[in-house]
């Protein structure tokens, strides 16, 4: 069971959270203007990164807020958690 640092509540066990998939996939502002390829990509295509992965979590059984996390999917170690709307931090990436 992972230990997840909610940016609002601090470290809490995974049981309190739900996972929200890949982060930073913004819903298009005007979906009607989006072509079939881009709409399909928005709905379905995912990076599925092996390594650093920006993802969304929700502290469902706590403060109920969504937030983002940067996690290494090869170790499950969290490098950072941050509020929604903030850009992905540059951590642990080869410079």
């Amino acid at each position: 069971m992972l230990l997840i640092a909610c940016p609002y509540c601090g470290p809490r066990p995974e049981l309190e959270f739900s996972h929200g998939g890949e982060a930073h996939i913004a819903r298009p502002e005007a979906p009607a203007d989006v072509g079939a390829d881009d709409w399909g990509a928005y709905l379905y295509l995912r990076a599925n990164a092996r390594g650093l992965h920006a993802e969304r979590w929700r502290h469902t059984h706590g403060c109920a807020r969504f937030f983002n996390a940067l996690r290494d999917t090869t170790t499950d170690k969290f490098l950072a958690t941050y509020e929604c709307g903030q850009p992905r931090p540059h951590l642990g990436e080869p410079s």
């Binding site: 929200g20 929700r58 469902t60 109920a64 969504f66 929604c84």
Partner: peptide, 13 residues
């Protein structure tokens, strides 16, 4: 509720 919260918090804050 979870879906509503998702859109409200992350798409339309």
């Amino acid at each position: 509720l979870s879906m509503m919260e998702d859109y409200l918090q992350t798409e339309w804050p």
